[in-house]
Nucleic acid binder design. Structure first.
Length: 256
DNA sequence: ATGGTAGTTGTACTA
């Protein structure tokens, strides 16, 4: 089973690329972030024509997550189960082929010390509580998506430039570590311990053209899922296409 | 310390 995560930065703007990428890569499961649309604008038919069933938790203009799958998606839930408000749609979960998936678009946080940053930390605390209380972490579970956090300096092209800045600050990284301490394996790190493999490149600084990126998209797996992982790839070719997202897809392969 | 681009939107906001 080939499983991908990709922040598409608007599924409507990215639809031509998404279709070409699905045809080329033929992943079985795709977790998307930043769909930036409501259900009525979601490209159900185009995805169905490619053989994908989809579940979506979207909103106008911002956020939005979706799971695409060639086989049935079961036990779907949208948002944290205890979130009555759910104004920012950042979470969707489901089970495919006996593996549970949790697709996340973590709050960006704008700038360390800002109000959005404080909301990011509160959101992350809630995520850790949710993972610890909702799941049996001895079962196959993959938590993946745009975490908007670098794990450590190996994930930063210029660590000094980003020292204690947003996406790299200590408190953010501590929440990512807290998730890993629950027993998750960071699959990209496991396969590329040397670092220097990035998933996001800032449009503003022409980061991709300069090789200046960050690894902020992650695939975290519980031990039974991690043991089945045989291959990990960041699709930098996609990031170099015309009209790309600012994020590259991350693809992992699980042996059946 | 700041800005740069992109998407959606509507003449600002988020990333």
């Amino acid at each position: 089973m080939r499983v991908a995560t990709w922040n598409v930065n608007s599924i409507r703007a990215r639809l031509p690329r998404l279709i070409a990428w699905l045809e080329a890569q033929e992943p079985d499961v795709v977790c998307l972030q930043e769909t930036k649309c409501v259900d009525d604008e979601f490209p159900w038919d185009a995805l169905s024509e490619l053989g994908y069933e989809a579940v979506h938790h979207g909103q106008k203009t911002y956020n939005g997550v979706a799971i695409l799958s060639k086989t049935p998606i079961e036990d779907v839930f949208r948002g944290f189960p205890d979130d009555a408000e759910d104004e920012q749609r950042r979470v969707i979960g489901g089970t495919i082929g006996g593996i549970q998936f949790l697709d996340l678009y973590v709050v960006n946080g704008e700038k360390v010390g800002s109000e959005k940053y404080e909301r990011k930390l509160i959101w992350l605390e809630r995520l850790v509580d949710f993972l610890a209380s909702y799941y049996d972490l001895g079962t196959p579970l993959v938590v993946l998506g745009d975490f908007n956090i670098t794990r450590d300096d190996r994930d930063v092209y210029d660590p000094e430039r980003f020292r204690d800045k947003i996406l790299c600050s200590g408190p953010e990284r501590e929440f990512l570590e807290a998730i890993l301490e629950l027993g998750f394996v960071d699959l990209v790190r496991e396969h590329y311990p040397q670092g220097g493999l990035y998933t996001w490149f800032d449009f503003r600084t022409r980061g991709f053209e300069r090789g200046q990126g960050l690894r902020i998209d992650h695939v975290l797996a519980t031990p039974p899922a991690a043991r089945a992982c045989v291959e990990v790839e960041v699709d930098l070719t996609e990031r170099g296409q015309e009209k790309p997202s600012d994020h590259a897809p991350v693809i992992v392969t699980f042996d059946a």
